[in-house]
Every structure is written in structure tokens, then in C-alpha cells.
Nucleic acid binder design. Structure first.
Lengths: 117, 117
DNA sequence: CATGTGTACTATCAGTGATGGTACACCTAG
DNA sequence: CTAGGTGTACCATCACTGATAGTACACATG
């Protein structure tokens, strides 16, 4: 479910955050489904529990999961997540598109590339 | 010409690299035009010469400038730069597009957003 | 030669990601 | 109630990286 890429320059906790965000947004994890415990996931990935803790805290801060002390971490049921995330993506994409247009790429060529996906 | 954003999380040398890449690709700097000397730019930006040195070394490594020892750094005349850079942008954009499509955004809506730019 | 250029070092500092370890509070199953 | 699993909060330490400070040297130009 979760894999760490040590060649990735991003910190481990950030990779975990991104991975869970993706899993949740794609619907691979159901609402209120329980995540591995801090200690279990740390064992499984052979990393420190504090690193998992940091990742989970960030996921909670962003509304992707919620925490019940003494019980565990669970997938949030917030339905607005997907829409908010879509907007983030669109903003990122548009920013890149603006830059590539500025160095002379044509909008139609770019759209053709996207159509071809 | 060059501005440092201390709120930016990226390191200073990286901001300088990106800034010059953009200036060169947009044609704001002519081929063989001389860049500020390591010491001058460091003074102007109130940062350490070593940081500028690091940025210039990276720009040279990527082929955006060339160095003549004892004379200075100059804008490269490599005409393939723009095309290579375009491809980099397209790859980045397509990667993001794939992700946003996976969470349920429609391709036509996305294209509409790009058209609207 | 003097000056301005790039280059190469070394040492040091600060911030951050990650680890290791301890301790405590909470919940649930038995 | 107790034991064991859960999250949480610390603290100390280490490694890496970005940045600074300073020195020294080689090269090019006037």
C-alpha cells in the first residue's frame, strides 16, 4: 500500500502524506476506514514512528483523516476534499501552462498533447 | 533583474538558477551577453559569493551559460535549449494532468480552463 | 603590474528531516 | 480493574544541506 522511494529527494513523511492523499482521493480507501497504527506502519516500513506521526498529523491538518486518541487514525468522510484538490491541480497546471506559453509553445500543440493521453 | 524571495521555501541558489533560465528562454538576455560577476551580483543581492557561484555552476551544467575563466559568465547560444525546456514543461504538465484525471476531473473541463487563459 | 574575473578550499552556523528513547493519556477487550 | 494497543508529547542526537565567512590562487585585460 505504501512504499518509500529513497531515491526521491522529498522527505519520507511527505511521500507518505502524498501517497495517502492519492489513495483517499481515488477512493481506494473508504470513509472511516482505519489506517495502520503509527507503530505498525513504522515497523512495516522500517522507519521511525515519529516520522509516521508527522505524516498523520499533516494528513489530519489537511482534513484527509481524523484521529481518535487511543483508537487510531481513520479516513475522513469530507466530500469537499476532491473538489478542493481538483482546484489545486488546476492551479498548478495553469501556472505551468502560462510559463510554457511564454517561451513560445503554442496552446493548440499543448492541448493536442493532452488530448492524446 | 534578479530578486530573492525569502518567503520562498526553495534555496536561494535555486531561485537564481530558475530566474536566469526564464530570462534566457524568453529571450530577455541575448546570446553571449555577459552576466553580472559573481562578486557584483553577490554584493547587489547582499548574499554570499559562494551562493552565486553555485547558481552559475548549475546554469553552466545545464547548458544555459558558459564560463570563461578570468573574464566572466555569458549566455549560451545553444538553440536547442528552448525545445528541451518545452519538453520538460510538457512532461510536468502531462504528469499533473494524469493525476487530476484519476481523481475524476473531465478532460474537456480541463481543456476549457486552458483555453480560457 | 594592478584589477577584475572565476575557482577551490576550509571552517562554521542554522534549519530540517530522521532516529532513538522515554513517558503519559486514552480506549477497548478480556 | 488490568493488559495491551492506540495517539501524543517530549528530548537528545545525528546527518545533510543551504548559506556564510574568509583565504588563496589562476587567468585575462588594460
Amino acid at each position: 500500500m505504501i512504499l518509500i522511494d529513497y531515491k526521491d529527494t522529498r522527505p519520507i513523511y511527505e511521500q507518505i502524506v502524498e501517497r495517502y492523499k492519492t489513495l483517499i482521493l481515488k477512493g481506494a480507501l473508504q470513509s472511516d476506514e482505519q489506517l495502520p497504527s503509527v507503530r505498525n506502519l513504522a515497523m512495516e516500513l522500517s522507519i521511525n514512528p515519529n516520522t509516521i506521526q508527522k505524516a498523520y498529523a499533516e494528513l489530519e491538518r489537511q482534513g484527509f483523516i481524523y484521529t481518535v486518541k487511543g483508537r487510531g487514525n481513520f479516513v475522513s468522510g469530507d466530500s469537499g476534499l476532491v473538489d478542493r484538490r481538483k482546484n489545486e491541480y488546476v492551479e498548478q497546471i495553469l501556472a505551468l501552462v502560462r510559463e510554457v506559453l511564454e517561451i513560445g509553445m503554442s496552446k493548440t500543440e499543448l492541448i493536442r498533447e493532452i488530448e492524446a493521453l
